[in-house]
Amino acid sequence: MKQDSGFTLIELMITVAVVAILASVAYPSYTRYVVRSNRAAAISFVMNLASKQEQYNLDARRYTNLLSSLGAATIPTEVSNHYTVAVTADNTVAPPTYAITATPIGTQLTQDTQCGTLSINQIGVKSISGTGTVSTCW
């Protein structure tokens, strides 16, 4: 009696179906994780800038519009690949104000509709432009 070795077509198709089901569950979860990690990198950078903006204000008695004045001449690549960061200051009002904004670009823009643009101002008020809540995004 001869014994056949190998897989049947049915066994192979079942294996392919199981792998496809696992991939269809895992890929969306992975992309959500990537979006959250990109957002976390941007939040960390923005909070660091806010801290440096306050230090700058203590030294110069005003806020600055220049990232280079805050020691951030270049934005880290993990942030700049997914966000544009802008610092705006208004020293003509009393007390002076500033806002730091991280605007998503590319795939981060299309995939992070829940949070969108992240902003913080001189009194620490955080805001978003997306459909989610500030507490879940920040």
Rank of each mutant, 00 (worst) to 15 (best):
V85N: 07
I21T: 13
N48W: 03
S51I: 02
G132H: 05
S69W: 02
F45K: 12
Y33N: 07
S44Q: 06
V85D: 07
A60E: 14
G116H: 03
R36F: 00
T103A: 15
K126D: 11
R36H: 06
T113I: 07
L58G: 15
I100N: 04
R62N: 12
Y56V: 12
T133N: 14
D112Q: 04
S5T: 14
A73H: 05
I21F: 11
S29C: 07
R61T: 11
L49D: 08
C137I: 04
I120F: 07
A20C: 06
Y63W: 06
D112Y: 02
G116I: 03
G116F: 03
C137G: 08
S80F: 05
A41F: 02
M13I: 09
D59P: 00
V125P: 00
A26H: 01
R32S: 14
N65E: 11
V19M: 14
G124I: 13
L58Y: 02
P96K: 04
T101K: 12
Q111H: 10
E11S: 10
T77S: 12
C137F: 04
T31V: 12
I128E: 09
L70P: 04
Y83S: 09
Y83A: 13
V125F: 08
T136M: 06
Q108G: 14
L9P: 02
L22H: 01
V125I: 15
A86Q: 09
H82D: 13
L9Q: 03
Q3F: 00
T92W: 07
G116L: 08
S68G: 13
S29G: 15
M13V: 14
T117A: 12
R32P: 00
G130N: 05
N81F: 01
L22E: 05
T15Q: 04
L49T: 07
V125W: 00
A89F: 05
E11V: 04
E54Y: 02
S135I: 10
V25G: 02
A72G: 03
S69V: 02
G124S: 10
H82I: 03
T88N: 11
G124D: 10
K2M: 00
T103S: 13
V85Y: 05
S51M: 08
S68E: 13
N65G: 13
A23E: 00
G132V: 08
Q108D: 14
V87G: 03
S80C: 09
T131D: 07
D59N: 15
V34M: 12
T110C: 09
V18L: 14
L67K: 04
Y98G: 13
N65D: 13
T84H: 06
P95S: 15
V93T: 15
K2Q: 07
L70S: 11
I128V: 10
T133G: 14
T113Y: 01
D90Q: 04
P28H: 08
E11W: 06
I10P: 01
S5C: 00
S127K: 09
R62V: 01
F7R: 12
G132N: 14
S127D: 14
Q55N: 13
V46W: 01
A17N: 06
L9Y: 01
K2V: 10
V87P: 06
R61P: 00
T101G: 11
N91I: 14
L70W: 02
Q111V: 00
T110I: 10
I120P: 03
A99C: 00
K126A: 15
Y63E: 12
I75A: 07
R62E: 15
T131P: 02
N48M: 03
